[in-house]
Computed example of a mutant assay.
Amino acid sequence: MTEWVLANHFTQIMESLASGVLAVDASRRILLANRAACLHLGLAENDLPAGSHCSDTPIPEPFRTAIFDVMEKKQALTRREVLLTLDNGTRREIGFSASLLGTPEAFGGAVFLFVDMTERRALERAAEVNRQLAQVGELTAGVVHELRNPLMVIGGNAELLQRVIPPENPGRRNLDAILKETKVLERLVAQFLGFARPFEIEWSPCRAQSIVDRTIAVCQSAANAKSVALHSRVVPPGFVFMGDENKFPQVLINITGNAIDAVPQGGEVILAARREDSDAVFEITDNGPGIHLNPAEDIFRPFFSRKEGGTGLGLAICQRIVTAHKGTISFANRPEGGARFVVRLPLGMGDQS
């Protein structure tokens, strides 16, 4: 077998691998990068040419730092993970190992073998959500039994007293505080119920325009309080999708409300809906600070929240409702600043059982 044939087979084998392969010599110049390496790192096919120095290529952080760390320490690595944020704002979890070329004494470089773990980790987190869901369900049954009825009694009596005690009465301030905190507790109990209680989707044709208008109506007062410009658009205006007209609006209301909370005074939030092929796509964008997570953090995980007074259940409930609609929910930071949430649902489900 000729040398050319061997080289051709080698190239075909490398390009057929689903795993990314990146070989770097001792001077940190690229010896080889297959097509999957560029794909997993969110790069174009010609962004990692042989002979180029790693510093002169768009290898995203923190993967670049991991490469330089291996080269400097001359130590192999196994089963490490890094979280990449690509130029378009999407996040990708990369699992990688590094093997040395030669020996630490006669160091010739390193070969990095890596795969995109994003989907696998998402499935693992979904399984963890289901496990936590079972635990929360047991907890909620006790919480509701012990708290809901007393809260209704406290809230109802406080409202009755509020009607007969004038605002100038010295005790009125304490009464108002009792009623306010009672409503907060009622909201917490309701969120626990919304997350833990089993539910079924009641399928019916839903007009996207009506769903968007309802969301804007609910969120408008919160936007006005912060002088936030709240805009909406639906293209085409009359398109219809199959969904639960009572449960699905909760998703848009929650995400839009979060966006209003996140933007500064006088900020902007846009709720847009469009028909895209066989999907209904709802997009909520804002010009706030964006969402910056540490590795392994997941904003859809129950009880994860950075909002003061937040329960960490709002987005978990949203994900549950969207999943029940056979849809997906995702987010990314916008290059120009702010965050973008995208909810994608099938237009028609056929068999909605």
Score class of each variant (00 low, 15 high):
F248T: 04
V164I: 13
L41G: 02
L151R: 04
D286Y: 08
A324C: 07
L230S: 04
S52D: 08
I260N: 06
R233H: 09
G109P: 00
A18S: 14
R120G: 08
R214D: 03
F10L: 15
E124I: 10
V143K: 05
D56Y: 10
T11K: 15
N294T: 11
E336F: 05
A262H: 14
R187T: 12
K74R: 15
W4C: 12
A339S: 12
N224P: 02
G95C: 13
T328F: 10
T285H: 01
L345F: 00
A126D: 13
V322T: 01
D213W: 02
L113F: 12
G348I: 01
C318M: 04
P104R: 06
R163N: 08
F114H: 04
T328L: 09
P264C: 04
R207M: 03
K307P: 04
G257L: 05
G288M: 06
R233F: 02
A126T: 11
T57R: 14
I291P: 12
E105W: 05
L86C: 08
N8V: 12
N169H: 15
R197V: 09
K180N: 12
V342D: 01
S27P: 03
L139A: 07
I201C: 03
I178L: 15
P335L: 01
F282D: 02
L139I: 07
G312V: 05
A26V: 02
L48G: 08
G314D: 02
V21H: 00
R233S: 14
S55P: 07
R148N: 07
D69G: 09
A229E: 12
V153G: 05
L31G: 15
E81S: 14
I13K: 13
A76C: 00
P150A: 00
A177I: 11
S16T: 14
L313N: 03
P62N: 01
V269I: 06
F241G: 03
F10A: 15
N157T: 10
K73H: 10
S210M: 08
R306S: 07
E93Q: 10
L77R: 14
S55A: 14
D47Q: 11
H145Y: 12
V5N: 13
S19H: 07
E297I: 12
N88S: 11
V343P: 07
E124C: 06
L139E: 03
Q220S: 11
Q209L: 05
L6Y: 14
L22F: 00
A50I: 03
S97H: 06
L313D: 01
I67M: 10
V234H: 07
L293T: 00
T57V: 14
A296M: 13
S278M: 06
D298T: 08
F195L: 13
G309K: 04
A229I: 11
G95R: 14
V218E: 02
T118I: 07
A50N: 08
A110I: 01
R120S: 10
G20T: 06
A36K: 09
I94Q: 00
L6M: 14
G243C: 00
R35H: 15
H292Q: 02
E168I: 11
K247L: 15
P205G: 01
F239L: 04
L83A: 13
